[in-house]
């Protein structure tokens, strides 16, 4: 009995020892010498592996940053949209380099058609997939550029930042968005755009990408940009360009004066996270008529809800906005 135990221990020990020796030599032979900073950089990254930086994952991004830091002594063009400037500052610190600040971006859905503003003209019945429908026909609402409402962008998002609103049939982006660009890729109609988050998250954009002429565009959708150029004329900052019957607001140049929002006859231009407007006593009627939007943008509605709940905060913001507005008006004058 004892013998068996001894033999077993010896033989197992021998096998184990032999394996250890082999493993040691193999490990030595195939050892990969890696810059230890790659690991450090990777640790600093958010590990979302979203691909928003343009690389296959956080590891690949870490390798690229270390390499570029080594070769060119800068981090230009490299940016982790998820981590933002803070993470990039950490990365720069690890690599002993200057971090370049990038304005944070956010995904913006540039369509406000959906079920309400662009009602069904035909009914689609089949596989629930935007790309397929895009290839099949113009869409239920008839707009050849509008949102198809089947949520491929929602499936693409890794951050739970975009959801379909069942009421409007349109996707909505919340503040979890890190601008990784996955939804932008996924959308077959290129409706989603990455735009600067803006001061206090305030943004103004044209919520339409329809390039048809005014007539058919308006026929398909209540809130389509009809290419009337009114906003283009009213903008004093060259932030608005007209192309293919469509207005586009450059987020960098826009000073958030909101002149175009009130000017737009189809309410295609949206303002987000702005406090409610002051109503001037003089031309009250005119102003009211223009500010009360026929169908509010979902995100805007949220903002309104916010004002009810956070009155205090809003008041402060309102004052700030007033100041801003005054400044802008000064500039205009």
């Amino acid at each position: 009995m004892d013998e068996i135990i001894i033999y077993a221990v010896i033989s197992l020990g021998a096998v184990g020892g032999a394996a250890a020796i082999i493993l040691y030599f193999v490990a030595q032979k195939f050892k990969v010498i890696e810059d230890p900073r790659i690991d450090l950089v990777e640790e600093a990254l958010p590990a979302a592996n979203c691909g928003g930086c343009g690389f296959a994952g956080c590891r690949a991004f870490a390798e690229a940053t270390v390499k570029q830091g080594e070769d060119e002594n800068n981090l230009e063009g490299l940016n982790c949209p998820v981590g933002g400037n803070d993470v990039m500052a950490d990365v720069a610190k690890i690599l002993d380099l200057e971090a370049n600040e990038v304005d944070p971006l956010i995904a913006v859905v540039r369509c406000n058609g959906g079920k309400i503003n662009s009602p069904q003209k035909v009914v689609y019945d089949g596989a629930s997939n935007c790309t397929f429908v895009h290839n099949l026909f113009g869409g239920e609402g008839g707009c050849p550029n509008g949102c198809l409402g089947l949520g491929e962008c929602v499936d693409a998002c890794d951050f739970e930042a975009i959801f379909m609103n069942p009421e409007t049939g349109l996707p909505e982006v919340n503040d979890k968005c890190v601008a990784c660009g996955a939804c932008v890729e996924a959308c077959p109609r290129d409706i989603i755009e990455l735009r600067p988050v803006g001061k206090k998250s305030r943004r103004i954009f044209v919520s339409c990408i329809n390039i048809e002429k005014g007539g058919p565009a308006k026929k398909n959708c209540e809130v389509a940009c009809i290419g009337c150029s009114k906003c283009f004329k009213v903008c004093k900052f060259d932030a608005i360009t007209m192309k293919n019957n469509l207005a586009y607001i450059d987020g960098e140049k826009c000073v958030l004066c909101r002149k175009c929002v009130t000017e737009c006859p189809t309410h295609a231009i949206h303002e987000l996270n702005f406090p409610p407007r002051r109503v001037k006593t003089g031309d009250k009627d005119k102003n009211e008529a223009k500010t009360v939007l026929k169908v509010k943008h979902p995100a805007q509605e949220n903002a309104v809800v916010g004002t009810v709940k956070l009155t205090e905060k809003v008041k402060v913001e309102e004052q700030a906005a007033k100041k801003d507005d005054n400044k802008i008006e000064d500039k205009l004058n």
Partner: peptide, 13 residues
Amino acid sequence: RPLLDYLRLGKNK
């Protein structure tokens, strides 16, 4: 099942 819908989508992609 919408087999051809997905086959078409596959061909497209």
